[in-house]
Each structure stands twice: as C-alpha cells, then as structure tokens.
Design a protein around this nucleic acid. Structure first.
Lengths: 240, 240
DNA sequence: CCAAAAGTGTTGAGTATACACCCATGA
DNA sequence: TCATGGGTGTATACTCAACACTTTTGG
C-alpha cells in the first residue's frame, strides 16, 4: 500500500537522512487550482482557461499555479484566481488535495483544489499571458479538461450542492439585493431540479437569514420585493 | 490579498521562468499527518506520538512525514502511519490541507491532514526511532500539540462526528462482530452524548446496514445478539 | 432470587410535501 | 385588457423524540 522500502530515506540514520534531505530537490511541488462558479440565466457556470503553453497547451483548465514559499494556500489560490480573471474579492473555500504522481505528466505536483463563487459571470476580466483564452461553460457540460481537473469539477459541484442545503452559501452567488425568484434560481441551477416556490419561500423564511429591503425591483410586470442576507459571511445554519 | 508582485516568477517570460524554476529549490514541502482514532470503554481516543528530535522534540504530534516524489498522498499517509504505529490496514480519509507558512517554524511545509480509524486501540505497535513515545489520549483532553496539530484534531473530530450521522463509518471503529450496545457506545463516545437505546436501534435497523450473526455474545448476564455490517466499505447512506 | 444488561411499542409534535389561484404591474 | 411574473395557505404523510417495562442469563 505504502510503497514499502522503495524510498528508504526515512529509515536512514538521522544525520544521513538530514544531509540527504538538505540536498534533495526531488520533492513534490505544491499547486492550487480553483473552480470558479457563477449562476446566470442558463444555470450554473464554471470558468475555464485555455492553457497557452506546456504539454497541455490548448486544453481547458481551472485557474491555478504553484504555491510559493511564504504564501498561504488561500493566498496562492487568490493570486492564481486574480491572475486568471482579475477577481480579487470572492468567496473561497478549500475542497480537497489531489496528489496522484501521474496527475501531471511533467512532474509530481500536489494540487490543493479550491472553489470560488461570484455573483455575476460578467465580473471576470483579462487573464494573464499564461492562458490563451478564458470563458464560462455550463457546469454540467464541461469540455475535456487538463490534468485531473474533471475530478476537481465533480468534487466542487458536489460540495456546492451540499453546502446550499445546510449553509447560507447562496449569498456568495447573489448580489447584495435580490428577489426571491433570483434566490430560487440559484438553488434550482445548482441542484439541477425545480423547487416548489411556496415551500422554498417558507423554508428560507423559517431560517431567518434575510432582511427585506425597502425598495422593490420594478420590471415589465408586478414588482418584486428585494431582500438581502442579514449576514454575508457563510456560516452553517442550525437545522433543528 | 495575494502578495501582489512580491514573487514575480509567474510573470517572467516563459523560458526565463522555466530556467529559474529548474534551479529553484525554494518550494514548500508537502507532508501528511494522520489523526488516528479508536474507541474504548473510556470513550473516543486519539493516538499521539512524542517527537524525538527537531525543534519540537518532546512535544506530542500525530503520525506524519514528508511526501516523496512518486508517492500518492494516501500512500504517504499509510506509510507514515505504519512507521508510527505498525498499522497497515486502516480506514483512511483525507481531511484538509494546512499551508500556513508559519505552521512549521523551520520550513514552509504544506501538510495534508488525514483521519484513520481502527477498531481496537490495542492494535498499535512500536513506533520508528523518529518518535520517543506513543500513547492514546482522550480525544477531548489532548495535551499541547506540535505545529498546528490542534487544528487538525478539531477538524478530525468534527468530520468523524458528521460522518457518523450520514455514513456507515462506524464499521471502521468496530470489530467484524459486535453487539448493538457496542455500536451504540461508539456513537455515544464520538458524539459525546447519550442516545436513546430504542430510537437508536430503530434508526440503525431502518438503514438496513447490519446482518444478524448466528452466534450470541455470552457474558455475565443475558446474552446479546451479534451483528456485522453488510458492507465493510464506508459509503454514504441515502437519507431520503 | 437477585443483579445486570438485553430487548421491545406507542404516542404526540413537528416537519416536509403536494398542490392552484389571485395580484400587481407595464405594455 | 392581457400577458407575465409575484405572491400566498392548507391538508396530509412522514419523521423524530420522548418515554418504562419485561426478558434472559450467571452468580
């Protein structure tokens, strides 16, 4: 299971092991990759970048990069996301670490996967020269992805769905003011199923997460009441 | 937020960046640390090892070690656990990655935390020379730990509790045959609250996870029926 | 026969689901 | 006035929690 005896480093006498270790540069690298989500009228979307160089040039991937010495993982994820999309203020959550030595054919890179959420796909900006293109894809219909990014996508969608059920994470996918219909659309898009409007409204109201804003959203038809989350920080909701 | 401009590596021309990168050994290292749990008559227990060398010598910590090139994260966790406790077959689950640059004062080490479960604290064996001692502690009363291992402990306990509620993970904390009272003790120990025996039995039975064994456990009093999990692999239980 | 752990049902409260019509507005 | 999306209540099924006594065995 654990490559018995293949790498005898840890079994050497302490002094020898430390000397070897100091000289060794053959350590896995650490990277971060961030699955960026937003919801629009078509449903849940993922932002992908087309790699501009390297053995995977031309393939689509999530925003990522190597972690630097002195940098936190969250910091590296924010930097990679900013370089890829210009975004600086997003909800960010660590998902899982992927360390299969063959996930990157060029080197052993352990990647810490993140999920980021924004309220509007239009907020993304220009990508760094590392990428040749960037665009939104329907989360349920992604193209072939570089590395093991398909695994990350599956993991991220599952986590997002789970957290919609027991946290107020939807606030990260909505602007500060929104109608009940918009909130329901976020849930319907992420969960990929329609919700009963009356039951949904009752459930959300029972959680006491929202405050009603004085204004109304005026459109082509009956105006809709506007709401805001009482707390914009994501927290678990007591589900007693 | 993301150390803007402090590390210009990614912004260099590709050729220069690659040359620099090849020479650079200033990358964070990758480690794994495994929180080992078992339940005994006193409750939920964690296995800790006393560090025998290094700046944290004398402090208690979880079994861990650096990840080697070519090794999976799970493989590294299993190897570190085997070196620390002799255990080779445990339930193992990745928890979270901790990457604060100051978590280890001697170097920037990103650690992927794992949780391992065994059915009997007595199964642990001798530790490698890296450690000066190893013993079980009550999970709710751990000593001061090295690095950020207290964070890992909190995270692991939370994960274990959560998964007891919606998976059959308890099978990893029990021998192949057990009485209903023993199963209930595992839940009560991990959740740190007493359970109603009748409601607990009904809930478990409704999940259809157990099969009754032909034998009985004979003790000082009325014999107890023995059960085994139908599936020893941990899986989510449909909670419809 | 006594001590100790094993085993067993019912009731009531609360929660979740299914379901259809009127309202307010702009065009 | 009509088309469109906004807003509302009830009845039922189900789930969860509280609760105490009888059974079986070894000593």
């Amino acid at each position: 299971m654990a490559n018995a005896g293949e790498f005898p480093l840890e079994n050497r006498a302490p002094a020898a092991a430390e000397a070897f270790e100091a000289a060794a540069i053959a350590r896995p690298k650490v990277a971060v990759d961030t699955v960026l989500f937003a919801v629009d009228a078509q449903g849940l979307k993922c932002y992908l970048l087309q790699l501009g160089r390297g053995p995977n040039a031309g393939k689509w991937a999530f925003a990522g990069g190597l972690v630097r010495v002195g940098e936190t993982l969250d910091g590296a994820a924010r930097r990679a996301l900013r370089d890829a999309s210009g975004l600086t203020d997003t909800y960010l959550e660590q998902l899982f670490s992927f360390g299969d030595p063959s996930r990157d054919p060029t080197a052993h890179v352990v990647s810490v996967a993140y999920m980021a959420l924004i309220d509007n796909p239009g907020r993304v900006g220009a990508a760094s020269s590392k990428y040749s293109a960037g665009r939104w894809f329907a989360a349920g219909d992604l193209p072939e992805l570089a590395y093991d990014h398909s695994l990350m996508a599956d993991y991220a969608v599952a986590r997002l769905r789970a957290k919609l059920e027991y946290t107020n994470i939807a606030c990260a996918l909505l602007p500060s003011c929104f109608t009940f219909a918009e909130l329901e659309e976020v849930y319907a898009a992420a969960l990929e199923r329609p919700l009963d409007r009356r039951n949904f409204r009752r459930r959300i109201m029972a959680m006491d997460l929202l405050q009603r804003m004085p204004e109304q959203r005026r459109g082509a038809h009956r105006p809709a009441a506007l709401y805001a989350f009482k707390h914009r920080s994501v927290r678990a909701i007591q589900m007693l």
